[in-house]
Amino acid sequence: MVKPSSLIREKARSPQKVIGRSQALLVVGLALCLLVLFICLITSITFGAAEIHPNTVFAALTAFDGSTEHLIIRTVRMPRSLIALMVGAALAVAGTILQGLTRNPLASPDILGINSGAAFAMVLVLFLLGGVSAPVYVGFAFLGAGLTAIAVYLLGSLGRSGMTPLKLVLAGSALTYLLFSLTTSILILDQETLDEIRFWLAGSVAGRDVSLFLQVLPCMVVGLLMAFAMGKPLTTLALGEDVATGLGLKTGWVKVTAIVVVVLLAGSAVAIAGPISFIGLIVPHVARFLIGTDYRWLLPYSACLGGILLLLADIGARLILKPQEIPVGIMTSLLGAPFFIYLARSRVKR
C-alpha cells in the first residue's frame, strides 16, 4: 500500500514538472546560455581573413593602441559580431511572440512575410527618394513590417475555420512572392542600387553601416525589454483566447502590444541586416524544448539562443566557401528549411 504522504508529494511535484524546471535550474541555464553566447561572440571576432590571436582581441577591446590589428577588431569584426548577436536575438524573440500569439508552430517573421514587407518598404523608399536619413529609412522598415503583419493576420484568419497554420503560411508565402517580385522590379529598373543592395537583400551582417546600427539599437533594446515585460500575459494568452479572457486578461491590448513589439524587432533587424530567414522559426522551438511554455523564461532564452545561432551561422558563412563569403541569410535558409519541413510533418495535423 502506498503511504498517503508520498501520494501527496507526487501530486505536489507533478504540476511543477508540467509547467517547467525549477527556478534555480532556469537561472543557471540562462547563465550558461549567456556564457556560450559570449564564447561565440569572441570566436566570431577572432575568426577572419587576418589571423589575430585571442589575446590581441582582448587587448583591442580593453587597451586600444591604434595598430592595424586593433583597428580591424574595432571597426570591422566587433560591429559585425554585435550586429549578428542583436539581429539574432531580435528575430528569435519576434518569432517566439508570433508563435505564442497565433498559437501556430510555423509562425515567424520571415514565413509570414513581415521581413519581406520591411525589405520592400526600404527598397521602395531608396528608389523613390534616393538617399534619405537613417531615421526615415528605418521608419519605412517599420511601416512595411507593420502593414504586412496586419495584412497576413487578416488574410490568415479569413473564413469559418478561423486562423489555421496553413492559411497563415500560405498568405505569408503569397505575400512574400508578391513583395519579392515588386522588389526585383525596382532593383532591375534602378541598376545603381542593385549591386549595393543585393548582398543585403540575401540577409547579411558583413560590412554594415555602424552609424545605422547605433540608430537602430535603441529600437531593438526597447523592443526586447518590452517583450521580456510581456512574459506573463503571453503565457496566459498561449492557453487560448477564451481561457485568457476568463482569467481577466485584456487580450486585445496584449495582442496589439505584441504586434507592435514584433514590428519593432523584425523591422529593425531587417533595416540593419536584411531579411534573414528561419532564425525566428527555429529558435523558439529549441527554447520551448529546453524550458517548456513559460514565456517569462522563454523570451530571454530565445534572445540568447537567437544570438548564438546567428553568430554561429555567420561564422559558418565565412568558412564554408573560404575565401569567399556567402550571405548569412543563405546559411540560415540551408539550416532552417529542413527544420521547417520537419515541423510541417510533425506539428501540422490535417
Partner: peptide, 18 residues
C-alpha cells in the same frame, strides 16, 4: 502538407541556388 513541404523545399533550393 503537400503545400507546406513545397514551401520548405522551395526555401531550401533557393538558398542552394544563391
Amino acid at each position: 502538407r503537400l503545400i507546406l513541404i513545397g514551401v520548405g523545399i522551395a526555401a531550401f533550393t533557393n538558398a542552394v541556388i544563391s
